[in-house]
Design a protein around this nucleic acid. Structure first.
Lengths: 354, 354
DNA sequence: TTGTAAGCGTTATCAC
DNA sequence: GTGATAACGCTTACAA
């Protein structure tokens, strides 16, 4: 493990000079010395000790990717294809810019604070924050924090998110335009000030616009894992009047499609489904899943860009990036003929045989 | 940011004593002092600076999770549901034991070495290593290294893997037992000494056992992303005599099923498919995917166990854990009636209409 | 253009 | 029982 001292010794210069060369503070060093030092660095295979740097500089080049959602059913947060794909994109972009990525789950804000100070963490990515226990501590921190899909606002924070409202509105409108009137909404727990709430509002707005009464009975909350999706499918099947479903994640939509199929309900013949995200999965399902597209790699890019700008002390001109969403039409939505009034709950008087 | 010094000052003892209390070296400290120090720690909200610790102790509590596979098509390694789910499991287990997880992609062994020395990395998880450029450097390191799914052996390494040969053998045998004779094999690039080679051998062994000639023409290599799977589907469709497919990853199997469907070939009517992994995806496909099950959470647990043992200096009794695989029968394999000789290429003289 | 030296927070050695 | 003190590798005033 070669150190700066070793290089200094080998080249016959001082540590200061070596350090200066390493940091390109080359104005005050002779060309010859630079050359010598660089050769020695190569020769001795020198790499900086980040701990030492971190200690003296109070910063570490470590960026934390924080997860604070502990899924049930012993699943891991990384089982969410969205989260994981995003993490991969972040890792790559950070690495290309000289940063390191630590993955960390925290359950309390104390844990979070401890983590930050343990490592002098330089910046933080945080997914799915709402006005909850984390908000207060986060807003006191003076390191760059980039939220993904958050609807809390604070001068210290950046955010990259989506047109959630519009996406969900579009999805719902799509069903309505295809003749659906009785449309359910399926989502993980909807929290105040979160993405899902926004999507929920989009759903409601579309209903309202078409004078379709909102019915709390057909809003279903569920975890994202398969078993939970199967369970919620049974609930849904108990509402045979539902002809369309707006689901806030493709992965759940897939689970529900499978669940409904097991219960003998066909998509899209008996029930139409729209997902959200447009992950590759959509295209391998039968029927393929109509969904709201978002560009996850772009999201990652923007997130890292914001982060890097803040790390370099530049204040990004926009603290918030809202990425567009659009509908991708595939096979999971069918048109209900206008004359078929099956969408109107009041006209369906008999309960189907399940 | 309270430091040990602050605590020392507040309590009126020396740094040494504080450090001793923190580390439970409590034999040589009075009960009263311990009490005082602990109170101060709470009060000042002290958390250790890991960089400082790392600097003086040459170890860091940082475990690296190394990825060295750079997928094409701008996908990220984390897009592999297997990799990501595994990463999540590792993070959790490490955290519960006081370690930190850094995610890192490296392209060369130099990059790997630099990373290790940058952070005094204490241990390494490495997926998919074969006798390649990394082997040599890794074997010179004296930190715990746990491989996942590797077939290279070395006294310094631990490994947790699967019955790959048996799994693949079982899959192939399953098809044969259901009357298939013309069975293709689909996999990402098969490398010497890798998991996929092992699975490939299992496939061949099953063929041989049933006196089915091996045919290189129907071994297909492809990347795991959807577009690549679609592409390989077209290749497969050019071999209409193939009635069964052994695929080394569910995620690919899903892509191929979708690809074949687009080409008008039905699973399992026209072609039967068996996957590998048994990820949740299998159960949302239509037809649901028959596959070889492996327990990914168990894999993660074993991997962390081996790691922790080595970190604590214990030599684990077994340096290798081989997890069982078994077949999960679902809907993607059909029985070919014995009298139907369609499996014999020689008897299929006409090329179907595509 | 280059060097000296202090200090970052922690641990470890050794003395009291 | 407790406390100086040096050392880990690096950066940065400040000198020369």
């Amino acid at each position: 493990m070669a150190t700066i001292k070793d290089i200094a010794k080998l080249t016959g210069v001082s540590c200061t000079t070596v350090s200066n060369v390493i940091h390109g503070r080359t104005g005050r060093v002779s060309a010859e010395t630079i050359e010598k030092v660089n050769r020695a660095i190569k020769e001795l295979n020198y790499v900086p000790n980040m701990s030492a740097r971190s200690l003296v500089s109070n910063s570490s080049k470590v960026i934390g990717m924080i997860n604070h959602i502990i899924p049930k059913n012993q699943a891991s947060f990384m089982d969410d294809p969205f989260q994981s794909s995003f993490t991969g994109a972040i890792e790559r972009a950070l690495r290309e810019n000289g940063y390191y990525l630590m993955l960390r789950t925290v359950e309390t804000s104390d844990e979070l604070m401890a983590f930050l100070r343990n490592w002098n963490v330089d910046g933080l990515f945080f997914t799915g924050v709402f006005k909850d226990r984390f908000f207060d501590v986060l807003s006191t921190l003076n390191i760059p924090i980039v939220f993904i899909d958050s609807y809390v606002h604070h001068p210290n924070f950046c955010n990259v998110g989506l047109e959630d409202f519009k996406g969900s509105y579009t999805a719902t409108k799509h069903l309505i335009d295809h003749g659906h009137r009785r449309i359910g909404f399926v989502s993980p727990t909807i929290r105040d000030g979160g993405v899902l709430q926004e999507r929920f509002y989009g759903y409601k707005a579309a209903l309202t616009e078409s004078s379709i009464p909102f019915d709390k009975q057909i809003v279903f909350e569920s975890e994202m894992d398969l078993e939970s999706c199967f369970a919620v499918s049974e609930e849904i099947a108990r509402h045979p009047d539902i002809t369309g479903l707006v689901v806030t994640a493709d992965i759940m939509a897939a689970g529900i499609m499978a669940g409904l199929r097991k219960l003998g309900r066909k998509v899209p013949d008996d029930i139409s489904i729209i997902g959200f995200d447009d992950i590759p999965l959509c295209r391998v399902l039968t029927p393929t899943l109509t969904t709201i597209h978002q560009d996850i790699h772009l999201k990652g890019e923007h997130a890292v860009n914001l982060m890097l700008q803040k790390l370099e002390g530049k204040e990004p001109e926009t603290a918030e990036v809202i990425l567009p969403t659009y509908l991708v039409e595939r096979e999971s939505v069918r048109t209900i003929k206008p004359d078929s009034k099956s969408g109107y709950g009041s006209l369906v008087t008999e309960t189907p045989p399940f």
